[in-house]
Design a protein around this nucleic acid. Sequence first.
DNA 1: GTGTTTGCAAACTTTTTGCAAACAC
DNA 2: GTGTTTGCAAAAAGTTTGCAAACAC
Lengths: 144, 144
Amino acid sequence: MDVQRRTTRQRQLILDTVKSLGNHPTADAVVNAVRSHDAHVGRGTVYRNLKLLSEEGLIRVIKAPGGNRFDARCDEHAHAICTSCGAVADIELPYREDLDRAAGAQCAYRIDSHYTLFEGVCPACRAKEGACPVPRTQPDEAPR
Amino acid sequence: MDVQRRTTRQRQLILDTVKSLGNHPTADAVVNAVRSHDAHVGRGTVYRNLKLLSEEGLIRVIKAPGGNRFDARCDEHAHAICTSCGAVADIELPYREDLDRAAGAQCAYRIDSHYTLFEGVCPACRAKEGACPVPRTQPDEAPR
DNA sequence: GTGTTTGCAAACTTTTTGCAAACAC
DNA sequence: GTGTTTGCAAAAAGTTTGCAAACAC
């Protein structure tokens, strides 16, 4: 009952793009990069394929506030996200299945998995913040 | 240089609503509940105050895919979210500061914190899924 | 040829914002 | 009275969807 999946030029291009970008791009960043190779690829096509590719296990989704990120690295690890600019870094952190079991024992849900997201400030944004010990409300440039 | 914060009727109502709803409501659920007490409260007011209240530490934000949830419980714990209906449950899981230190040592970010989100299926949705071992694409009712 | 996939544009969801009027202090 | 906060409506940001044409097999 499975759907016949076809190898389209676009699908391959999107996968290659996530792999070559490397840096946990947003869907929008993938759209832009893909369009630099083929200007006529539709936004919907990119979203559809990013979802498909992640379902097939060829890429991974990072569910981040402000928009999902996509990771060509499929082995287990966690991520840190910059709360100022949204940049994502890999964090080596082994998956703990025991946490899933412990959580499942607590709450009547069937627990399938979990993810951990670290929040902080990346080196570039720290530099912009200046040397003040307490984080300022807003640097001279609005990072959005 | 701090802003003078005022105690408005709306702010208090929004806080009381999150507390009385109890079940990790979405912003939209808070809007609806608040409006059942006062139909003229603006959506923007609710969003603004949910953010303010969380900055003040009176409520906590759960950064969930599909929309933030708000928790009146402010002590340390994690959450499980139902991937079918979005229902959120509390999971007792102590905060591990050592993970922040370990992550910070790995990646050049200043790591401020982390959160862990469990994903699974809540009892109600499991019942709807029926007894089939493989999760079906869609139950008879579309939970959206 | 058949059935999947695409491009496009429109719709949708969640959240933010501009601004004058209303309100807290 | 001063300065914050509100209500409203519009805009933003991220994502999904309907549909005919294009394409993979």
